[in-house]
């Protein structure tokens, strides 16, 4: 009886929804949920400050350091100064490898805690591919490293994550490239960690047999191939202490200063000679 009217009412409300919400609701920054779940690019799952209290207390010992860290809620970090690797900037779909060369006060505060919790994992990138590793792992690379011999010690110096049970140091997220700006891949400062791998040898895969056929012919050709892969053993994964890091930074600055002074001196000499 009054079904059409009801239907009309329903439809009217549904159609009116978009307009009414905009007029009734206050601006976005005044909404109640804005301060509860701020929109950030930082992963909520990996920040220690965002871990819910009951989860942290689930039958697990919490160090005083972690409690401190939770008390002083960490804010999102920013990549302030970076050193670009030599690359052509105007190449379409090029790639740039960058390292965050400064550490924030927050990292300075939490790095000793990360270092103290032993058994670290690290995500190293070899030829742009990530490998999640811990000390003692055997890594069979999906390719043959041509320039190494068994027994060589490699230094893995491009990492995006290094972490322990409770802490993770992350590099900023990768920025996608366009036809005018290159892709920017951010890595951790290589002075913050030491990761060494020993070349164990090469591994020979089982022979592959590929059947090659031609149309309207009963003959089947068999193509055989067998690839070799380099095997690495991760001999060391370590986070450097703040003192070691500062020493390295000082050394580098000293070297730069010396080089500049030498350049100045040679210029002066040239002027004198002229």
């Amino acid at each position: 009886m009054f079904a059409p009217a009801l239907r009309r009412a329903v439809f009217e409300t549904t159609t009116r929804v978009p307009t009414t919400t905009t007029s009734i609701l206050p601006p976005a920054f005044l909404l109640p949920f804005s301060h509860r779940a701020p929109i950030t690019t930082v992963s909520h799952s990996l920040e220690t400050g965002n871990v819910a209290e009951p989860l942290l207390h689930s039958g697990q010992h919490i160090s005083s350091g972690l409690k401190e860290a939770i008390a002083s809620r960490p804010t999102s970090q920013t990549a302030s100064s970076t050193t670009p690797s030599p690359a052509f900037t105007s190449v379409p779909y090029g790639q740039q490898s960058l390292q965050v060369r400064t550490i924030t006060p927050q990292i300075r505060q939490l790095l000793p805690l990360l270092r103290a919790q032993s058994a670290h994992y690290i995500t190293v990138h070899i030829h742009g591919r990530p490998y999640l590793l811990t000390q003692g792992d055997t890594l069979r690379l999906p390719f043959l490293m041509k320039d190494v011999q068994p027994g060589d010690i490699l230094r893995l110096n491009r990492a995006t994550h290094i972490g322990s049970r409770d802490y993770t140091l992350k590099a900023p997220a990768t920025v996608k490239g366009t036809r005018d700006s290159p892709k920017q891949v951010f890595y951790l400062d290589e002075r913050l960690f030491v990761c060494r791998a020993t070349v164990v040898g090469t591994e020979l895969e089982p022979e592959r047999v590929k059947e090659k056929t031609k149309r309207r012919q009963r003959h089947v050709r068999h193509v055989r191939s067998q690839h070799r892969y380099t095997v690495l053993k991760i001999s060391q994964v370590e986070v450097r202490s703040l003192e070691e890091y500062d020493e390295l930074v000082m050394k580098e600055q000293g070297r730069k200063g010396k080089a500049r002074r030498n350049a100045d001196a040679s210029e002066e000499l040239a002027e004198v000679a002229a």
Binding site: H127, I153, Y187
Partner: peptide, 27 residues
């Protein structure tokens, strides 16, 4: 500036991510 094919390829290549610290220590 024009770029050669090799330069474009080089700019698209990621970092190797490793260097040989010590050659053939065991041998």
């Amino acid at each position: 500036q024009p770029l050669t094919k090799e330069q474009i390829r080089a700019a698209r290549k990621p970092d190797p991510g490793y260097y040989v610290e010590r050659r053939n220590a065991g041998n």
